[in-house]
């Protein structure tokens, strides 16, 4: 799959797809989308890049091992779930900022939870796929 077309295309596709994935993530609370789909789209973006340019290049581009995204994501989700407990509310109670933000709508702890999901999905998917491609 070392075609010039794919190589060139993937160079532009990666940022575009990543942007799209973040868009899907953020609008998830109002329209179809969310952390799962967003994470999967981002993962596909990286996989596509790896196919075109080789795994080493993609990993260089990412700088960190995708596996690190999993604990980070878990931590974000856990903190956003536990944050209400600091305010003496039960685990996972939604907290909301009073003023709405454009595109996203109301800013709340549920969004951070979804961001955690997003990161875990990217991390897990890429860890699985990269590990398999590495060990032939």
């Amino acid at each position: 799959m070392n075609t010039i077309i794919l190589k060139t295309a993937s160079k532009y596709l990666l940022p575009l797809l990543l942007l799209f994935s973040i868009f899907v993530l953020l609008r998830g609370h109002y329209l179809p989308g969310g952390g799962f789909v967003g994470g999967l789209i981002a993962a596909i973006a990286f996989v596509l890049h790896a196919f075109a340019n080789g795994l080493e290049n993609t990993q260089q581009l990412m700088r960190i091992h995708p596996g690190f995204l999993m604990p980070v994501g878990l931590l974000i989700s856990a903190i956003s779930g536990m944050a209400p407990m600091l305010l003496n509310k039960p685990f996972m109670t939604g907290l909301w900022k009073s003023d709405p933000v454009p595109v996203i709508g109301s800013l709340g702890s549920a969004l951070f939870f979804d961001i955690g999901v997003y990161l875990v999905v990217i991390g897990a998917t890429l860890t699985i796929l990269f590990t398999i491609s590495e060990t032939r």
Binding site: F36, V121, A124, T125, I128, I132
Partner: peptide, 20 residues
């Protein structure tokens, strides 16, 4: 189902690596 789809991806990848 959304949950099931994502989880089954984890299951499938684990199973296929086990086979490998």
């Amino acid at each position: 189902i959304l949950t099931a789809i994502v989880i089954s991806f984890g299951l499938q990848s684990y199973a296929i690596i086990l086979v490998k």
